[in-house]
Design a protein around this nucleic acid. Structure first.
Lengths: 157, 157
DNA sequence: TGAAAATAGTTTCTCAGTTGACAATCAAGC
DNA sequence: GCTTGATTGTCAACTGAGAAACTATTTTCA
């Protein structure tokens, strides 16, 4: 069916011919968004957000107890938000705040329960990553990794 | 200063050796997140979110008036959210709802003011995209685009 | 030393976005 | 035709994150 009312319609359009750069950028943001959503959905089944899980992984990877600020820095989040994330993780028994010499800071450590949770869920999380990346060959995955790194200067590390 | 209290610390750790797939996935989500933040900050100067701007671009690219549901579908957002986005854009005079034959649906069109806003801001937006993508050569940008498309099946379109 | 600046964490407020319920309208099947 | 089921948009309640103000500490340096 043709749309009839389009006769007196505003036809002012801005001519946009997206450059390669912009097309790539848009697709990148789009794919990232989609992945975040999928990830969020997965973790919500465990009553967590991906950010909570992220904290657990960071704690697990740390050799020493981390200050909350440091956690926030690693995950590009604010101190205020870290406070809330740790509150929730403590409530669940997955993390614990411990005192620090510097009485301003509170260190956070993974509890045994937190480690166990990580261990039991890890398989699924990794599996999901594998599935998400499956359309790409191993070489392509490496290329993607390298290009993304180059994009943000991370390839130097 | 060494941390002393680490003596009776929980040392339970889960051994995680991230696969190539997972590393690429994490970096992808991370980069996407960073780009969204940058984008959000840019648009906030105009009193908009990137999603508002996204709607404007979608409207601009459409040949016919779009139903709100269709807009939501294109930008992976919910109907309820589209309602609020359009409310805001109408308030600003950048978009307008028009009646439709099917009286359930409300079509949305870009107004002249909206088109003008797009035109005046486009240069900066495109410039920002160019800057963000600058670390990659044109070839690499294409590769990135292709790989991302392959990842989500978009390369078929 | 002691006052000012800096830092860590918390709290409060706000905001964009999602979920779920709802009314209005259309489509399908009997 | 008429009723049942789908679809569209809206509203209210909730959620997660950010910004700014605040407290408690520590550091700086005059």
């Amino acid at each position: 069916m043709a749309i009839k009312m389009a006769i007196k319609m505003t036809v002012t359009k801005v001519k946009i011919t997206p450059s390669v750069a912009e097309q790539a950028l848009i697709r990148l943001m789009r794919v990232g968004d989609r992945l975040w959503r999928a990830s969020d959905e997965r973790f919500s089944r465990w009553g967590l957000t991906d950010n909570h899980y992220n904290v657990l992984r960071i704690l697990n990877g740390a050799r020493e107890p981390l200050a909350q600020t440091e956690i926030g820095r690693q995950m590009l989040s604010t101190r205020a938000n870290v406070t809330k994330l740790i509150d929730a993780l403590e409530e669940k028994g997955f993390a614990q705040r411990v005192a620090c010499e510097d009485r301003r800071v509170r260190h956070v450590v993974l509890t045994d329960a937190g480690a166990e949770f990580l261990a039991t869920t890890l398989e699924e999380v990794i599996g999901a990553a594998q599935t998400a990346m499956k359309p790409l060959t191993r070489e392509e995955q490496k290329t993607l990794f390298r290009l993304l790194g180059k994009l943000t200067g991370d390839h130097e590390r």
